[in-house]
Amino acid sequence: MTLISSLSDRYPHLGFDDRPLAASCDDGWLGIIHAFLGDADKAMAAGGTFMLQQVKEKMGGLSMYYAAADIAPDARRAIDDAHRLASARSFHVCEICGRRGRLNNFNGLWKVVCDAHNGGEFGKGIPFVGPFEAHDTYSPEADPFVAARPTATEFDAAPVIEGWLIEEQAEVGRRPWLYGWFFGRPDLGDGEHGHTSPIVQIDEMVPPRWVRTDSGLYRLGIHYPPAEREIRYWAQKQTRRPVVCGEPPGGSNDIDAMLISLRSSGGLRWTKIERMEGAYRAEQESA
């Protein structure tokens, strides 16, 4: 069972209240569900009522049941087309982790899984071979949503970004990128801080586990809240060395010790350190 929250603000034309949506499927399909809701919200912008009644896995694929009233025929077609697309995508996305997957038969139970999740709690599945419908023209390779998702093999071989942060100050109209400490990236030494090229797609899992950029795929390691990460960044920079694999940026998890060290070093203005500490304390209170 997946609980999807914050729907009323994200999709204002779909009539959601503040209660989370209960979906009878695993988290790997969250991205597909959000893509459908985004298209439905655009179609409902002209008016009418929409009610999402049920989200579930059925015969291995994603099914969503909804009712719409007082809407134009083209809006209804757009929502129905978005639902068909969501169902088609689900047969190529692992229901468990959201990577590229394949429909498998587990002794009569149909489930879409990636190679890494074939052989888990359900045993070893037998892959389905052939088109799902005789008239099916959907191609996952031609669908950027599916094509950008990593396979299990590609994911395992990808470089890692620890302490990552999405750049939120990118210029209007430009795609954001990620900052972090890199491991396994050929052009950077392990533990060096840097940034990626612009983001193409990021995992919808919470927290996300991968990101694809213009230059390739990365696995995402630990993520720190913004204020804590900023303290860690300056504390690590003060050491004048890369992050050691397995060691947190800043050398420990003692943030107070990092702040004391930054104050004593004289490398940063006191006002900057005070601002970072205030933001960090606020993060801790709201956690």
Rank of each mutant, 00 (worst) to 15 (best):
M1C: 04
M1L: 05
I4H: 02
Y11W: 13
P12C: 05
H13L: 07
L14Q: 08
G15W: 15
G15D: 10
D26A: 07
I33C: 06
F36S: 00
G38L: 02
K42Q: 09
A43F: 04
G48I: 11
K56N: 06
G60T: 04
S63K: 14
M64T: 07
Y65F: 15
Y66I: 04
A68N: 04
D70P: 09
I71V: 14
A72E: 06
D74G: 05
A78R: 05
D80F: 05
H83D: 10
H83F: 14
R84H: 13
L85A: 05
S87F: 15
S87L: 10
R89V: 00
S90A: 10
F91S: 02
E95D: 09
I96G: 02
I96Q: 02
C97T: 09
C97M: 07
G98Y: 02
R99F: 13
R99D: 08
R100F: 09
R100M: 08
G101M: 04
L103V: 11
L103S: 06
N104Y: 13
N104C: 12
F106H: 01
L109Q: 08
W110T: 03
W110L: 12
V112P: 08
V113G: 02
A116C: 08
H117R: 06
H117N: 09
K124H: 13
K124V: 15
G125N: 11
I126V: 14
F128G: 00
V129M: 10
V129T: 12
F132I: 11
E133H: 15
A134Y: 15
S139L: 05
S139N: 05
P140R: 04
A142G: 06
A142T: 09
D143T: 09
D143S: 07
R149C: 07
P150K: 07
T153E: 15
V160L: 15
I161K: 00
W164V: 04
L165P: 00
I166F: 06
E168D: 03
Q169K: 03
E171C: 07
G173A: 01
G173T: 03
L178G: 01
G180N: 00
W181G: 01
F182W: 06
P186C: 03
P186I: 01
D187R: 04
S197A: 13
I199M: 01
I199P: 01
V200N: 03
I202P: 00
D203N: 03
D203Q: 05
M205N: 10
P207Q: 08
P208R: 06
G216K: 07
L220F: 11
G221T: 12
I222E: 11
Y224D: 04
P225W: 02
P226D: 10
R229H: 13
E230V: 10
Y233A: 00
Y233H: 09
Q236L: 10
K237A: 08
R241H: 11
V243C: 08
C245D: 13
G246I: 13
P249K: 00
G250V: 08
G250T: 09
I255V: 15
I255W: 08
D256F: 14
I260Y: 14
S264R: 13
G267I: 12
G267T: 11
I273D: 01
G278K: 11
G278W: 13
A279R: 01
R281S: 05
S286A: 12
A287M: 15
